[in-house]
Design a binder for these strands. Sequence first.
DNA 1: TGGTACCATGCATACGTATGCATTAAACCA
DNA 2: TGGTTTAATGCATACGTATGCATGGTACCA
Lengths: 333, 333
Amino acid sequence: MRDVARLAGVSQPTVSRVLNETTTAISISEETRQKVFDAVRELQYRPNMTARSLRTQETKMIALMIADISNSFYHPIVRVIQDVARQHDYDVIIADSDHRQDNERHFIEAVTRRPVDGVIMVPIHLTDEEIDHFIAQTRTPVVVIGVQIKHPQVDVVWADDEQATYEAVRWLLTERGYAQAGFVGVPDDFPPGPRRWRGYLRAMEEAGLPVEPDFVLFDGDFTLESGRRCARKVLAQERWAPVYFAVNDLMAIGFILEMQDAGYTVPDDVAVMGFDDIPEASIIRPHLTTVAQLTRELGDKLATTLLDRIEGRSEGPKRVLEIACKLMPRQSA
Amino acid sequence: MRDVARLAGVSQPTVSRVLNETTTAISISEETRQKVFDAVRELQYRPNMTARSLRTQETKMIALMIADISNSFYHPIVRVIQDVARQHDYDVIIADSDHRQDNERHFIEAVTRRPVDGVIMVPIHLTDEEIDHFIAQTRTPVVVIGVQIKHPQVDVVWADDEQATYEAVRWLLTERGYAQAGFVGVPDDFPPGPRRWRGYLRAMEEAGLPVEPDFVLFDGDFTLESGRRCARKVLAQERWAPVYFAVNDLMAIGFILEMQDAGYTVPDDVAVMGFDDIPEASIIRPHLTTVAQLTRELGDKLATTLLDRIEGRSEGPKRVLEIACKLMPRQSA
DNA sequence: TGGTACCATGCATACGTATGCATTAAACCA
DNA sequence: TGGTTTAATGCATACGTATGCATGGTACCA
């Protein structure tokens, strides 16, 4: 910038002012403005964002932590967030926690040492205390996906997946006519597993059906491989449910593949339903019956909610935004 | 840091020296070292990486640009790079170009304004000039995936996919006994399409087969949807090849799905082979015959090659590293 | 013509850190 | 005891930018 100033025959602050004309209402003569622009072009000058960040205390970056880059559910979300952020002149840095607690911790550590203007994340293992502490220390706006956080300023965008699961399981039992339904889930501390579990429970209760301990599994972690594991566990049992509701598509798909590898037919020997409607749901045979989440809308709401906070358009207590779910009847159940 | 210094009763530079003990050979008394550590713990102090970057001119970040987050081919690569980088105390920021030229340009722009210590990328549309210019301006080490770059310092990691394609097509023709083979490709300026095209050509030539214009398509862009488009084009024709080699799995899968949607059977009505061996290749029915690339090894080599450059262990002209390919015979061809 | 207002720009400084150099005190040697 | 080395620390500064304040100049008005 000093070189630009020298070439344009003005001072460094003047160059700064020309380049950030929007910021200050200060006036610059058209002549020097031109000289500066010419010099910038000539020298191919690009402002150093590191220095700018140090001075302004804002980085024009937002950090996004997803739980599993292999889960297609997140892909449209990533895309939309990148697009919206770009429109507002922010860069997005993406991190993948792989559902691992140490990775989540590392992410938080990274964004406190290297400040960003906002954070969007899927905190699976992070505690409320850790999040509180992060916010207290950095005052960074945070928006989360699909998880309720106690902190009074953390916005959340989610689907009402308890209700959606309830409706899906009810639909399996009443419309599709299954006499019983199993549940392929995750441990209690894996949001949003417990919500979907409650939806399942509600549907079972309403249908007057007992929850058979043999038919419910909690060994998953949202990955395809864990769906296979659950299927192997079922295969080792004597009794199966006629249909299994899996907490997400990836596990449903793993479950189906393992069943098929073992020589069974879906949905005749065992039916399977998923949640998310990722592209693979329409690749696998039979096509996966599932619940779609409007992920583009989800991404859009995440990004705009965060930017509203960052740019001061939203100051109050936390907002909870809901996105719609839609039953996608296909062939697997 | 000033607060830490005050609390520890020492000067700010002393705190800095204690925290970066590795850097300088300067000696600090054990007593003050302890006082500083205590103060750091008490104040929960975390160094500000922005300021540190400004001072040291290094950011401890490497930037990774992939071409399509929906292409599972990249997922293990991302994971391994994150892991290796972490071991060396670097953070990785991921960007997704979505094969779009403007996104690639934006990425380059972003990493010149906000310097990083190294770049790993899949430059599809970027010209040699743009890359030269970036390096000249920032002196940032660059490693690319699967593309030859003219710049004498840009390392490249790739598979010998021309040879692998040649062997795959030859295998289709000789071992599998197909009398002809089609090609589902991408335009000339989409690396690594042309290399795979040359492999196909070589196999056809060696087999003494003519390349039928009706059997070769170049309308793809590596996405599943573009595979469907190619299939629709084939469906509209009178003559088909008995087997099609697609430049990647995603296109092969799109091709198969569209064929199946139109009522045809794979591999009986038309056989399809892919390239990459992404997880979806083992989800689709029939399972996709394809060529596996050792993506974890690819990611590892990318990361270590880049870190070698960054940390000065490698100074010379560009290195070209090759990873192995492996034929994966399954059911689709 | 002198005073006031305002436009355009420069000067000085701060953001949080790392590091060359200077300084002090202690230790050692002759 | 005086001088020289060494260990431990502080002082001053720079990285590249943004901004409050001061300043010079021009135009306007009475």
